[in-house]
Every structure is written in C-alpha cells, then in structure tokens.
Design a protein around this nucleic acid. Sequence first.
DNA 1: TTGTATGCGTTATCAG
DNA 2: CTGATAACGCATACAA
Lengths: 333, 333
Amino acid sequence: MVTIKDIAREIGMSASTVSRALSDSPLVNVETKERIHRVARRLGYERNEVARALVMGASGAVGLLVPDITNPFFSDIASGVGEIADRAGYGVILCNTSGRVDRELSYVRLMRRKRVDGLILCSTTIDAPYLQEVQRGRTPFILVSRLCSDASLSYVITNDRQGARLAVEHLIALGHERIGFIGGPRDVQSSHDRFLEYIAVLEESGCPVVEAWHHFAEFTQAAGREAGGRLLALVERPTAVFAANDVTALGVLEVAEGMGLRIPEDLSLVGYDDISYASLPRIQLTTIAQPAVEMGQIAADWLFTRIASDDVPALQRVLTPRLVVRSTTGPAG
Amino acid sequence: MVTIKDIAREIGMSASTVSRALSDSPLVNVETKERIHRVARRLGYERNEVARALVMGASGAVGLLVPDITNPFFSDIASGVGEIADRAGYGVILCNTSGRVDRELSYVRLMRRKRVDGLILCSTTIDAPYLQEVQRGRTPFILVSRLCSDASLSYVITNDRQGARLAVEHLIALGHERIGFIGGPRDVQSSHDRFLEYIAVLEESGCPVVEAWHHFAEFTQAAGREAGGRLLALVERPTAVFAANDVTALGVLEVAEGMGLRIPEDLSLVGYDDISYASLPRIQLTTIAQPAVEMGQIAADWLFTRIASDDVPALQRVLTPRLVVRSTTGPAG
DNA sequence: TTGTATGCGTTATCAG
DNA sequence: CTGATAACGCATACAA
C-alpha cells in the first residue's frame, strides 16, 4: 500500500505537506498541490481511513441495529439510512440482531469498540438494560420505531397508540365486536403499546376482552401462521384480527384462507406498517402505514448533524400513522 | 475513553503487559492477568479496534455491495452474510448502490480506503470496468448472484441459463408459443443470461421471437408495472410472460389484473428468485427458486477463510435453480 | 509556504 | 514473565 511517505519521498517533500495537499488545505502552494495530486494518482494512493480515524478520533461510520433485515419495514429503514449516509460520506455497519437481546448487547459493544461515530437502534426491547450502557457512553445514538420510556433520548417513531386506535376503531365501525390481537414479542415497546391501546379501545367500546384472543409471536410470517392458526381454531373465535405487523398479518391471512375462511366475509384483518407487498392487488391488506424510508432518513439526518456538533438538542419525532383501508376488512357478520 | 495506558498506570505495570493480558497471551502470569482484567472491567475499558486495525493491518470488517436492500432477494443474501460474519466476529458494511455503476465504483473505493478485509459484490454489471480495479487490489472479494466473464474470479451463483430454460420450457410444455420477456437492466449479467437462454429455447422450439415482447426495466415492482403495461397493451400480445425477477413479476401481475386479464387463463406468468412473498396463497407465483440466504452464507464462509489464508483456491460455485410451479401458469389458450 | 516533532492506541520485537 | 521501544499511517501544533 502506498502511503503519504511514499509520495513525499517521490517528490522530495515532507509528509506533512503531502498530507495537507491531499486534504486540500489552503496552506499549500497551488502548484505543489497539483504536483502532489498527480503523483498520488500515478502511484495509486488511497488514503488509509483507519489511520485517519485513529488520529481524528472519528471513524466515519455509524452502526445500524435492526432485528430482521429481511422484514421489508426494516430494509426500508436501512435504505433510508443508507441514502443519507451516502450523501454525508459515512459508512453504515449493518447489525442483524435476529431480535435477540444478547445479540443487541454484543453488537452495541462491538460498535463501540469499533468507535463508530453514532448508532441507530431499531432493535430496542422495553427497558433493555443495555440501553443504559449506551447512554453512559458518549456515542450519539437515536432510536427508530421503538421508543423507550426515558424522555431524554432521541427517537423517531410513529404514534403506536394512535395507530392501534385507528385500526381497532376501524374494525368497530364495521360492526365488529369480537376482535383478536396478534402482536410481536411482549418485550418490544411498539408491540406492547399497540396492545395496550387495542385493549383500551375495546373497553371504551364495550367490546369483550378475551385473553385467549391475544397472541404474541415473533414478527415473522411463520409466527403469524402459527399464532393465527391457534387463534382461529377456537370454537369461540373473533370475527376480526388486528395484527401488529404486516408480515405477521400475511401469515394470518395465509392460515385463515387455508382453513377455508373467506376474507373479509368470515374474518376481517388489519395489519401494521404498510410494507410494499400489502398493496398488491392480490393482497390488498388493510393496514396502518408507517413511513419507514422517511424514518430512516430523519434518524440519519439528525444523527449526522448531532455528530457534527455536540449541542444539537435531542430529537423526539413522533410521526402520525395513517389508516389505509383496503379489502381485508369488511362489515361484521 | 480509557486506554491500556490508563490500566497500566493504575496497576503500575507496563502497557505491553496489559496489552498481552487483554489479548489473553500465555506469556503473562495468570494472577496479573486476572488483576488486569479486573481493573479493565472496573475502569470500563473497551479495546480501540481502530488502533488495533492500524497496527494489525486488518480492519475486521467486510463490505457488502447490493443494488437494492429493499429487494427481498438481496436482503436474504445480506441476512446470510450477516449470520456468518457475526459468528466470525466480523462487521459488515452495507452499501446500497441503487443499481448505479458510478455508485458501485465509489463504494468500492470507499471500502478500500476503509481497508475492509474483504468484499462481497452483488452488484456487478457486465464487464464493469471497476472490477478490474478491484482485481488489481489485494482485497479478497467474491461475486454473488452476478457472474462476470472472467474465469479467475470467485463467485457463487445459480445457473441462470438453466433457470431460464426451466421457466420457458415449462411455459412451452403448457402449450404457450407466444412468450414475452421482462428482464432487469441490460447490463446486468444474470438478466442478460436469462434473456439469451429465453431466446435459445424459443428458437429451439420454433416459437416466434418478437422484439416488441422483450422489455428491460429496473428490478423493481414499478418497473414491472410499467414494462408489463406496455407489453400487454399490444394488440398482438403474448399469452405468457417470463419475468427475470420476482419483484418485477409482481408488478406485471398487478398491471395485468388491472387490465382485466385473468391469471393464468389469459396470461401465464413466471418469475425468478422465489422471494418469500411469492409463496403467499394469494400470490402463488410460479417461479425459479434461488437459495438466497444460502448464497450469502457460502460467499461469506469462503471470504472469511480466504481472508484467513492467502492460499485458498478461488471458489466458483454454481447452484442449481429449481422450478416451483404454482398457480400463475396454466395451459395456453 | 514548508518542515519537524509529536501523538492517536495498539501490537510486536527484542532485551532483560 | 515483564518492560522499553519502535512501528502502523496520518494530522497538526509549532518552528522556520
């Protein structure tokens, strides 16, 4: 690998001048600067960013933790983050936690050791103990899609309670009273919030709250099939289901039709996220839309300005979810 | 940030001993080793991986270039790569090229400057000039899903010609003779190969080769709608379409049904990749399956052993695609 | 405008 | 077993 010393030797100047020239410092003669650039190009010089990172105390990379990159919601976020990072000249290190808390922790530690300049966390479970560890560090970070109770943190989320309300009230407006819930893991904040609001709306409206109709699964299609299967096998089963996640909803849809249920005649179904597949004509899933790409962009945007300057206030952005009525929901009975 | 020097000072020993202890070297007294670890933990020491990378000449990270992380095919690959990287203790830097060659190039250069230990390229366009640049460097790399003509390279792909043959012969066996093609960008190797084989099978079977039935679009749903719309608007339109990509196929499906065409009665459709949504009961897309996650795993596996040792032979793995017949294809006429 | 010296945090070499 | 000392490649304060 050719270094600035090689270039310096080649043209008989000091390494510092070469360094300055390559960083386009104004303190160096224009001609020598050009000469240096020429030689650098000829020799195929490529700046060693790790050396630079060491001396500058900044690595030029941020870490992105997602529970499952395979879930379109998170790959959309990743795409938004990547776009902004690219513009800002940052690299993004992708960490797929598979929803396991131990992995979240070990990834966060790895990122800290790698001295990333910032962290975007989409994988936060409720009161995750490691969050405190993250806070103690001086690495700027922001939570996406999953809020934590602490109010001093930065985050960009959508209003989960509002979203859940939209979903359940839509169902109730259609005449449904027996409404089931299939959520993500219990310890995931967003899923938890959606559940709480689901209960609240049920109670407000005098709908029955039946424990057997509440299921908590992974945020995957398979888990949706499984939970949906158990829910719909009940003799006393609900006429509508609110799934706290589109991928899960797709699984429910699958198992429901497999059991011979017609949608929405026999079962109404509303999901959450509005991933791109939800809008396919064949699917037409009623769902609560979250602007995933935009959330990634907003988070990354804030993070980079925060990295650039310490005195940037915390960002607490709560976007508004939107009910998208398609054809998996219809009048009850 | 606490460094080994701080620890050294704290317990009155040299930094070298601390370094050795922390790396669990056998050349250091077990007791002092324990003492050092205790102090390190108490002080909250975290090894600076960038300093380590500088002196070791290895960054502990690999770059992953994908054209679109939002495409389930590539997020599956990313997931496979991530899993193996995690086990090997490597970080993976995600680069979303959005299919733009200039970005591929600039990302490759960024990765080289960041001194990644290896590169996984899923974004290679045919004879991409920058590939030669990559080859000149000493960074090990491997191509995934997109082969390049050069035989000395490592890659893991599926046999695209075989896959395309499977698709088109399936259509012909169903009695179709008028078969259209909607591919990805012309300069993407895999898309190109699938097209060539499509033509070959058509000619072998005496089917008409109609230029107006060949469309090349981006690998996206929107592009699929657009290209599909133009193709199906022709008065002389094909009775079947082979889309070189599931995401595109989903777009075609959408626009076809929007035009009132019944699938498969009026139009048979086969895709490529077998992304998870293709198997949804509502979709049931006939397609050519590629084991994306596994491809990512295989590539990462090879890359890490290659990084560990220079004399690992190139890997040229050609997996066999599989025809998955579902319900978007049916008898002609 | 340029050069010299120093440091970033580790690891490695070589003495002791 | 442990300790100096010298890199790794670059950036910068300070001199010239």
